[in-house]
């Protein structure tokens, strides 16, 4: 957290900022596009601003937009956001040993502020939690600096996108950039044949079940894909997967 002086006065804070800075233009472009996509998909400026400031998770924001616009029930939107965000649950298991010495509110705030890129950079830099208090502070300060620049790039660019959106005619269809972004993240997750199977099954099931009310096709598609993949794993364990 950038506002704690023990972190932002630490040299590792600046180092964290410096090491995320090459990623900053990419993060900003993604934020800009998300800002435009939110407004162009029919959200109000106030809603889009609140979403930027509070949700702070591009993929779940973009996934929620078509559901909000379609009037899906809240639980369907939250369940979808939860599933999209499940990759962070995996990250949190790893980050636990680095943060567990802190008071709960501090580690939860660190968790909230640590998005994909910050996690990847942090995990690449520190293979193991530090043994000493000074080492733990350094790691925490690095994470905080990294998170801070990432957060700033994202928030500023998102607001610029929200402001810019009103200058662009809706007929241009710029909301589609949000779908392309999700498609890119989807491709980045397609790291094994089983995950590709999950994507194909979920995509097909979401289309087949589209006529279900309340956007339930999304929930059904996720459930069908996950259950099918777990079943395939059971029947034919993939190499490297413990049964």
């Amino acid at each position: 957290m950038f506002f704690l002086s023990r972190l932002n006065r630490h040299p590792a804070f600046v180092q964290g900022m410096r090491e995320v800075s090459p990623q900053s233009p990419g993060i900003a472009a993604w934020g800009l596009m998300t800002g435009v996509a939110m407004v162009k998909s029919g959200m109000s400026v106030f809603e889009a601003s609140a979403m930027t400031l509070l949700v702070f998770a591009g993929s779940s924001q973009l996934a929620a937009i078509p559901l909000i616009v379609a009037g899906a029930p809240a639980w369907v939107i939250l369940a979808t956001g939860f599933c999209v965000n499940l990759r962070f649950v995996v990250f949190s298991l790893h980050l636990r040993s680095f943060l567990i010495h802190l008071p709960r509110w501090q580690r939860m705030l660190h968790g909230y502020l640590t998005a994909d890129i910050s996690y990847v950079l942090f995990a690449r830099k520190y293979a193991h939690p530090a043994e000493t208090a000074a080492g733990r502070l350094e790691q925490e300060a690095y994470l905080a600096g990294n998170d801070f620049l990432n957060w700033l790039s994202w928030i500023v660019a998102s607001f610029a996108g929200v402001a810019l959106a009103n200058l662009i005619p809706t007929t241009w269809g710029l909301g589609f950039a949000g779908i392309l972004c999700l498609l890119g993240i989807q491709c980045s997750l397609a790291s094994s044949r089983m995950r590709m199977l999950s994507a194909v099954v979920a995509g097909a099931a979401a289309v087949v079940a589209y006529s279900l009310p309340l956007k339930l096709n999304i929930v059904v598609a996720i459930a069908v894909a996950v259950i099918l993949c777990l079943t395939v794993e059971k029947v034919r364990p993939a190499p490297g997967v413990k049964a």
Binding site: A63, V89, L183, A202, A221, I222, L230
Partner: peptide, 30 residues
Amino acid sequence: HWAQRGLQYAPIAALSAVVVPEIITVQGTL
């Protein structure tokens, strides 16, 4: 164990379920 394994498959399934209909259907009609 099943939930740990499910973590491998749910995120990409959720994205695909949102993305695919937005690409190949108009309001759900292919």
